[in-house]
Amino acid sequence: MQPRILQIQQSVLSKNDELARGLRDRFTAAGVTTINVVSSPGSGKTLLLTKTIERLVARGYRVATLVGDLATDNDARRLAEAGAPVRQIVTGGNCHLEAHMIEEYLGDWDLKDYDFLFIENVGNLVCPSSYDLGEDFRIVILSVTEGEDKPLKYPPMFNSADLAVITKIDIAEAVEFNRDAAHASIQSVRPGMTILEVSAKTGEGVDVWVDTLIKRHEGT
């Protein structure tokens, strides 16, 4: 006899997706631009964010940051030096952030008090790609030391991003970084994506990056 079939057609991550939709509505209502930053460990996310926050604060923008880390609060302490509120999400071994963590850690922050909310995801190019955090934009960071073909190794992550930032551009020559190959890899898995190049250390390209963020904020 035929087995009984129960049609479901439901996303496995429906609970996360529903929470993310709720967060996105809150962010939009409050006028805060939320940016989910993803990359490998060691790509220079924290330094870039620190410099970014410093410049945004200097230009009168109000910024808050949530930072995910497997075990330490080192990144949160570094980011706090930039002069804006930071909360650490210690994931306790979890390799990615989920929407319920964002909701929990936003806590009593009044989102209307902020123009930008940065979410520094756990350093990982696989797992965070599946989880919508309610962000307006997902930024993927690639450093010049990682190899130009990295996007080809992690297509789902690069494909899910809205903007790519290549970091540590000041040492590109020393590590024989092939700029054209890196751009081609990114375009191959995410055609049309804007790519910026920065050095958080020397400041090269940081103003263009910050201007891009501000333009996106004013466009929302």
Binding site: P3, L6, I8, Q9, V12, L13, S130, N159, P191
Partner: peptide, 23 residues
């Protein structure tokens, strides 16, 4: 190159096969 994706992001439960009482 095109980024207009029509399929490939699915992660969804389609249906369940149940053990009937007869079985």
């Amino acid at each position: 190159l095109t980024g207009d994706i029509r399929q490939g992001k699915e992660l969804s439960i389609d249906y369940l096969e149940l053990e009937t009482e007869d079985a």
